[in-house]
Structure formats: C-alpha cells, structure tokens
C-alpha cells in the first residue's frame, strides 16, 4: 500500500509546515522528524498529516517506491476530487465541520472501496472534512438480459445473464461512483 504522499515543503513554522504536491497545499506536522532537520524546498513523505521521512527530489519517481503501488494513488486522486466536492457542499451550507461523507461505488467503476477508505484521510487532512467518517456503500453489479429479459446479479468479469447465461445483457447497476450525502455540523447554536 502506498499510503504516504511525497510533497515539497514550501514553508515552516515551528513544528508545522506547508507542503505542496501537484498544486495541492497541505498543512502538515514535522513532529515525527525531530531527529532529522528539514528546510524549505526539501521533499518529505506525508502520512495522515505527518511528515514521516525526508526523501530526495527524484525518489518519488523511482520504480519500486510509489509508482509500483499505483492503485492506491488512483484512489487518492479520486478522494481528492471527492474532498473538493465535500468542501464545496460544506462552504455552501456554512458547515463548521463535516461529520460523515457517504459515497456509493460499484465494482465496474474501477474503484476499490478498501483503498478509497485508506486514501481518504490523506486527501482530507487539513480540510473541513478532516475528521469526517467515510461511508462507502458498495452497489452490486446487476444486468438485464436482452434475450430473456431477466434481471440478475453478475460478477464484474462475468457479465452474463444469471437466468439463461447469454452475454447480450445491459448493465443496470454497478458502474456508479457517486457522492450521495454529506452530514455536517453548522456554526449555528441550536435554537431552544
């Protein structure tokens, strides 16, 4: 699993640093690197909001480091897109914080629910959704047969009619990758 993200330090204030990668800014803690002095311009590996290791600028691209663990990177990119949407919802509704984020994911979307859950804290670090719970609803693949009209569940790599075994089927569920619901706490005091 590639659960650390290489980022470049752009600013340091005590134990806190501002880091940047691919245009995304994050506030991270340098608490774990007390034995290893870092400076602006250094590259570090970030894991759930903490810089955990100093690395050379070239290292992230080396085979055997992050590039071979790519599938969780792809879920990370999806989580970053998700967090952008959640932040927008939070802003539009004057949220003080996000409590939970519910997404629905089908096997044919190409996204692994487990990897999404692992990538979420990295993408959410430093945002209004940082402590939110991610709820992933997995939608099973369902097909409708063009020949016998039956509807049945199917495996992602065997899209056949469960009734007559024909491959002339239409997928009716299992492709989705949706943000469904955002539960927020607003800044308002409850009215009694």
């Amino acid at each position: 699993m590639c659960l650390a993200v290489p980022m470049k330090i752009t600013g340091i204030d005590g134990f806190n640093a501002t880091c940047e990668a691919k245009g995304i800014q994050r506030e991270v803690s340098l608490f774990m690197l007390q034995g290893e002095p870092v400076a602006i311009g250094d590259h570090v590996l970030i894991h759930v909001g903490y810089a955990i290791q100093k690395i050379s600028a070239e290292e992230p691209a080396l085979p055997g480091t992050c590039s071979t663990k790519c599938s969780s990177m792809h879920e990370l990119a999806i989580c970053q897109a998700l967090i952008e949407q959640v932040q927008r919802v939070a802003r539009d509704n004057a949220a003080r914080r996000v409590i939970s984020v519910t997404v629905s994911v089908g096997p044919l979307s190409g996204v692994e629910a487990k990897l999404l859950e692992h990538a979420y804290p990295l993408a959410a670090a430093g945002t209004v959704a940082e402590h939110a719970q991610l709820v992933v609803v997995t939608v099973p693949v369902r097909v409708r047969c063009r020949t016998c009209k039956a509807e049945s569940e199917a495996a992602a790599n065997r899209l056949l009619c469960g009734s007559c075994n024909d491959w002339h089927v239409d997928v009716i569920a299992g492709e989705e990758m949706l943000l469904q619901r955002v539960e927020i706490e607003t800044a308002d005091e409850p009215v009694h």
């Binding site: 897109a81 952008e84 539960e183 607003t186």
Partner: peptide, 23 residues
C-alpha cells in the same frame, strides 16, 4: 484527535453527484 465538541446543528445534505464530475 482534535474533535470540536458538538454545539452546532447537525444537517444531512443529499448531493448525488459523480465524484469525478470535475474531470
């Protein structure tokens, strides 16, 4: 685990958008 104590109102907002809609 800096969770702020709950004081505000809790709201559940239905969204239903494709996660990759920006892409």
């Amino acid at each position: 685990a800096a969770q702020p104590a709950t004081k505000g109102r809790i709201e559940s907002i239905e969204v239903i958008t494709a996660i990759l809609d920006e892409n």
